[in-house]
Amino acid sequence: MADDSFDSPKAAQETIESDLSAIGPDRSLLIVDDDKSFLTRLARSMETHGFIVTTAQSVAEGLAEIAQSPPAYAVIDMRLADGNGLDVISELKAKRPDARGVILTGYGNIVTAVTAVKLGAFDYLAKPADADEIFHALMATNHDKAELPENPMSADRVRWEHIQRIYELCGRNVSETARRLNMHRRTLQRILAKRAPR
């Protein structure tokens, strides 16, 4: 995590005032992550920046917080024990279209980045992201949509990435993955045994 210490009390005060004016009048921030130590550190850092932080450790808790009071800002881990963080970002945008949400993931790829942005995420950061990176992503004003990549993945690679993602979400269970993808088990096994296409 970034070091949130300051050189002097005056510098600290100026930084806090600058952060508060950037955040705006509604300083509510929801952080959803099932890594408790990361969640605690990030919550503390975001409070230092001036946010009023609420935390959740699952999709269910995140959805409950949004139903109760949709926040102005959100930082949501993509892979949670009980489901996908994209469900939380989607619900947040439905309840509060002006909210700014950032998706965090340790499993970054272009396919899920585009999906996250389509569902309403303002940005997409790969873990480990520090508090300053996350703060700047929440405050950014110059990117409302994902940029077109220089070298986009081939259609074969996109298909392979999607299959890998479903396989991981199914706990690496071949039979369950094949059922979910409506694919023959042997066909899936052949795809999983091959290297990723370019």
Rank of each mutant, 00 (worst) to 15 (best):
A72S: 15
E147N: 09
V75T: 07
V102A: 03
M139D: 04
N142P: 01
E150H: 11
A129Q: 09
A129V: 12
V88H: 05
K127H: 07
I66R: 00
A74L: 11
P97K: 07
L104C: 06
L104Y: 03
T141G: 10
V111Q: 13
T112M: 10
L125T: 08
F122S: 04
P149C: 15
P97V: 10
V111A: 07
A67C: 09
K93S: 14
D132Y: 04
P149R: 14
D98E: 15
S69R: 15
M78Y: 06
L86H: 11
E150D: 13
V102D: 03
A72M: 15
A72W: 03
T105I: 08
S90I: 02
D123L: 04
P70K: 14
Y124L: 01
Y124E: 01
V102H: 02
A129D: 10
A94H: 07
L63H: 03
T115I: 09
L92C: 05
H136K: 14
A137D: 05
K93Y: 14
Y73C: 00
A81K: 07
E91I: 07
I134C: 03
Y107K: 06
N109V: 12
A140Y: 06
T105C: 06
T105R: 00
S90G: 09
L125K: 09
K93A: 10
R100W: 05
A81T: 09
N142R: 15
I134T: 05
M139E: 04
Q68T: 12
S90F: 08
I110H: 13
E150N: 09
L119T: 00
S69H: 04
E147D: 11
T105D: 03
Y107W: 13
D77W: 03
A94N: 12
I134K: 01
D77M: 05
Y107S: 13
A131V: 11
N142Y: 11
A121I: 08
D77G: 11
G85W: 02
V111C: 06
A137Q: 05
P71R: 11
A121W: 08
G83H: 07
M78I: 06
L80D: 04
A67I: 06
I134V: 15
G106L: 14
S90N: 06
P128A: 13
F122H: 14
L125F: 04
K127D: 08
I89K: 00
A116K: 01
H136M: 10
E150C: 08
L92N: 01
V111E: 11
R79Q: 14
Y124F: 15
I134W: 00
Y107F: 15
I134H: 01
D87G: 07
S69D: 05
D144Y: 10
L138K: 03
E91Y: 13
E91H: 15
L148E: 15
L119D: 01
V117K: 00
A113Y: 06
I134A: 00
N109G: 13
F135A: 02
L80P: 07
E150Q: 12
V102S: 03
L63E: 07
E91K: 15
I103C: 05
V75C: 01
K145C: 08
S90V: 02
N109W: 13
A64S: 14
I110F: 11
K127S: 02
P70A: 14
L92V: 07
K145M: 08
A137H: 02
V75I: 14
R79T: 14
P70C: 12
A146R: 15
L80N: 07
A137R: 03
S90Q: 12
L92D: 01
A99H: 04
L119C: 00
